[in-house]
Computed example of a mutant assay.
Amino acid sequence: MLDTMTFTKIVGSFCGALLVFLLGKWAAETLYHVGGSHGEEVAAYVIDTGDEDEAASEEEVEEVDFETLLASADVGSGERVFGKCRACHKLEQGENAAGPYLYDVVGRTIGAADGFNYSGALSEVAEVWSPENLNGFLEDPRGWAPGTSMGFAGLNDPEDRANLIAYLDTIGD
């Protein structure tokens, strides 16, 4: 039943299928990897518009000082930003959660929330939660107060920080 010619046809068909598969793989790599360079070359045509100087000037945008941002802060936007803080902080006086309560926090002595066990790293950096200290802390808590137990990564946008501080300033006495 299985003679030499049948066996040769079966092996030849497997070799042919393997050859077609390898050629297809080679063609796909050539198309998708620009000659096999794996991302070293860009497969795009760049049109020179002469706007390189404008792009460079846009990147060098002057930072607005924090006082100006705080003066023009939007309390409503700050309330929305507070949604990120709500998981660990409460606004009611004396109601601590994972973090201390934030009632009347702007201008309060650092580490003065009754009933909350602070890590001690905050009181070494500053004495009062001034808007400037809050701005630094909210930007990068672990960078501003190394050793703090606050696990929040921080708010990158200075406008969000200013809005949040303006909102927190309305909460309290």
Rank of each mutant, 00 (worst) to 15 (best):
M1F: 03
M1N: 00
M1G: 00
D3I: 10
F7W: 13
T8C: 07
K9A: 14
K9N: 12
K9S: 10
I10D: 04
I10N: 01
I10Y: 12
V11K: 15
V11I: 15
G12D: 11
S13Y: 11
G16W: 09
A17R: 04
F21R: 02
L23E: 07
L23T: 13
L23G: 15
K25P: 00
K25A: 15
A28L: 09
A28F: 11
Y32L: 13
Y32R: 10
H33D: 05
G36C: 09
S37C: 14
G39P: 09
V42E: 04
A43P: 01
A44L: 08
Y45N: 13
V46F: 08
V46A: 07
I47K: 04
I47D: 06
G50N: 08
D51C: 06
E52M: 09
E52A: 03
E52S: 12
D53F: 02
A55C: 13
A56F: 15
S57T: 14
S57F: 11
E58H: 04
E59D: 08
V61A: 14
V64I: 14
D65T: 01
F66R: 10
E67M: 07
T68W: 00
L69V: 04
A71Y: 05
S72D: 13
A73M: 09
D74C: 07
V75L: 02
G76Y: 06
G76C: 00
V81P: 04
F82T: 12
F82R: 06
G83V: 10
G83L: 15
C85Q: 11
R86T: 12
A87C: 05
K90F: 09
E92D: 15
E95S: 14
A98K: 09
A98I: 15
G99K: 09
P100S: 11
L102R: 05
Y103S: 06
Y103N: 12
D104I: 08
V106G: 00
R108S: 08
R108F: 02
I110H: 03
G111M: 02
A112Q: 08
D114G: 02
Y118P: 01
S119R: 05
S119M: 00
A121Y: 08
L122D: 03
E124S: 12
V125A: 00
E127L: 06
W129H: 04
P131H: 10
E132A: 06
E132I: 11
E132Q: 11
N133A: 15
N133P: 08
N133I: 01
L134M: 12
L134P: 12
N135L: 07
G136F: 03
F137L: 05
F137D: 07
D140K: 12
P141D: 01
G143N: 11
A145F: 10
P146S: 03
P146R: 04
P146A: 07
G147M: 08
G147H: 09
G147C: 13
T148D: 05
M150G: 04
M150T: 13
G151V: 07
F152P: 00
G154F: 12
G154T: 05
L155D: 02
L155N: 02
L155M: 04
L155S: 01
N156V: 01
R161T: 11
R161D: 05
A162G: 13
N163G: 03
N163V: 03
N163Q: 01
L164A: 08
L164Q: 07
I165C: 10
Y167T: 02
D169K: 15
D169R: 14
